[in-house]
């Protein structure tokens, strides 16, 4: 009966991961900002086999309240064996280019908020040998591209933060797992036309569950994105700038 904490539990991807943990009979601590949806997700996970499900309402942008949430987690769930940081937004890049407030919101939710949450988690989990801290980044963080570099910068920054945490926690036996999904068919991407590169959240969730089990430092999901990003990262600028990527 593992203790699993999920931050951004109403995310489509996170919910699928939670179902896998529920089926294993884990105890779950779920944090999200929409009460009705959070309660529905929690109810579902109880029926699906979770030993216990706790919920906490929080807007992660409200970083001042991360600590009290983590205290509540420690009180009700106890020591965290697996933490998954999943929340995020995919802002409108066009707006982010023109509107500083929009860019700020994007950077806050996708970098500042998870970075500070991870800081709090690391502090509380550094003595928990065997524990796993996982966070969802994105392939968008691998190279700056004109079409979404604000979101990309936030995810890229998160990538570096996770890399550093991994370095710091490696001697203490705490694994830090970075997840880099490609295109996933979720509410975040509802308005995008879908093609063969798109994956379903349950497929991505299976990859995440395995990455956590295997304590893998970096996981691209679906796996073929590792190759795609290798290519994208190695395209010389002169050629890259001719694309609309």
């Amino acid at each position: 009966m593992k203790n699993v904490a999920i931050f951004g539990a109403t995310s489509a991807i996170a919910e699928q991961v939670a179902r896998l943990f529920a089926a294993e009979g884990c105890r779950l601590y779920l944090v999200a900002r929409r009460a009705d949806q959070l309660e529905r997700v929690a109810a579902d996970l109880r029926v699906r086999g979770a030993a216990e499900v706790f919920t906490f309402l929080l807007d992660f942008d409200d970083t001042a309240n991360h600590a009290s949430m983590l205290d509540d987690c420690a009180r009700r769930l106890g020591d965290i064996a697996v933490a998954l940081v999943a929340f995020g937004t995919l802002g409108d890049q066009e707006r982010c280019k023109r509107d500083v407030a929009a860019a700020q919101a994007e950077l806050r939710t996708n970098f500042m908020a998870p970075a500070l949450l991870l800081t709090g988690l690391a502090q509380r989990m550094e003595d928990r040998r065997g524990a796993v801290i996982a966070a969802i980044g994105s392939v968008a963080g691998d190279r700056g591209r004109q079409s979404n570099y604000v979101y990309g910068a936030a995810k890229g920054g998160l990538d570096i933060l996770l890399e550093g945490l991994r370095h710091r926690l490696a001697p203490r036996g705490v694994a830090v797992v970075t997840i880099k999904p490609g295109f996933v068919d979720t509410p975040m991407t509802a308005s995008f036309p879908k093609g063969p590169l798109w994956a379903k959240p349950d497929k991505v969730a299976g990859d995440i569950r395995r990455a956590i089990e295997k304590r893998r430092p970096v996981t691209y999901t679906p796996g073929f994105w590792r190759l795609i990003m290798l290519v994208i990262k190695s395209v010389p600028r002169a050629i890259f700038y001719k694309t609309k990527l």
Partner: peptide, 9 residues
Amino acid sequence: RGLDRFLDF
């Protein structure tokens, strides 16, 4: 198919 939650049993 996106509304696939159990609510109670």
